[in-house]
Nucleic acid binder design. Structure first.
Lengths: 153, 153
DNA sequence: CCAATTCTCGATCAAATTAGTCGAGAATGA
DNA sequence: TCATTCTCGACTAATTTGATCGAGAATTGG
């Protein structure tokens, strides 16, 4: 019941990019150092974020990655969903439709959604709403200024 | 980012036991059928729940498992924590103390807790509070009476 | 005491997932 | 043309997950 390292690294990378006031692209190599993420692993991650419309890239000298949107318009949910997929706490939540109406049959054998499915479906919504509510900008504002590592400009 | 099958099965088993009005112990075999969980796997699970103080067992003919507490006094949190351990959404939340005071150094390199750690620590609390708030009795009340399978008495 | 029943428990196992690496290649700019 | 930097598919090692197996110990009924 936790984020994958990949998602955690993705968040770290996006936060690090948002922290920098630099307008030039950041090479993977440099981002890797600031965010404490293995280079080749970060490579994969940034590619996913790019395909997901969060970043843009530029090749060659002076190239690297840049945020495509403002930090205040990128939510935790967006990043996490791209990497780890939707948060689904257990199999039976899938049988419960958004409006609570009966869906398919749960793996547990009951039809129209079981009590556990309903309860965990509520949890799913609580979590999603929280992740949607938090932007990368919000994260920056909760950092302690004295301990933060920023790119050199 | 989801419960293990083990935790899901544990919840199903506890809910099934709570559903039954029977006062005699339920054998693993029977529980396995009602809860749709493989017998030998369920065996392991029930043992954990027993050691965790949720169930009691009795051997021999007429033996089986029984809830040790009322359904209204068993929370989802209790069951899930026994099987899957504490919900910790990411590594950096560990560096944030319960009161928000600076803890150790995150894996991300920052000291006194990073912004991500603080935000996910909040999520952790939201989730824990939800799971603590929901009892097995609450789950029973959300079942649809017509579709539920109960033990024969 | 014997046999059937039922829990106990450690070992083992296959498949899936996770975390991370490698190396070749394509685009870009100087 | 060369250095730089992203692109991308393949690969691997370790871990976790989801089970299964089999021997054994307790309990009850006869």
């Amino acid at each position: 019941m936790k984020l994958s390292k990949k998602a955690e690294y993705a968040l770290r990378a996006v936060v690090a990019m948002a922290r920098s006031s630099r307008t030039k692209p950041v090479p993977i190599q440099e981002l890797s150092e600031v965010a404490h993420v293995p280079v080749k692993f970060l490579e994969q991650i940034l590619l996913i974020l790019k395909r997901g419309g969060i970043l843009q890239s530029k090749r060659g000298v002076g190239g690297g990655y840049q945020l495509l949107k403002q930090a205040s318009h990128i939510t935790l949910a967006e990043v996490v969903r791209l990497i780890d997929g939707e948060f689904v706490p257990m199999s039976c939540t899938e049988a419960v439709a958004a409006d609570g109406s009966p869906g398919g049959t749960c793996e547990c054998g009951q039809q129209g959604g079981c009590g556990l499915g309903r309860s965990f479906s509520d949890l799913q919504h609580v979590v999603n709403e929280y992740l949607e509510s938090q932007s990368i900008q919000d994260i920056l504002q909760r950092e302690q200024p004295d301990d933060v590592l920023v790119f050199e400009i």
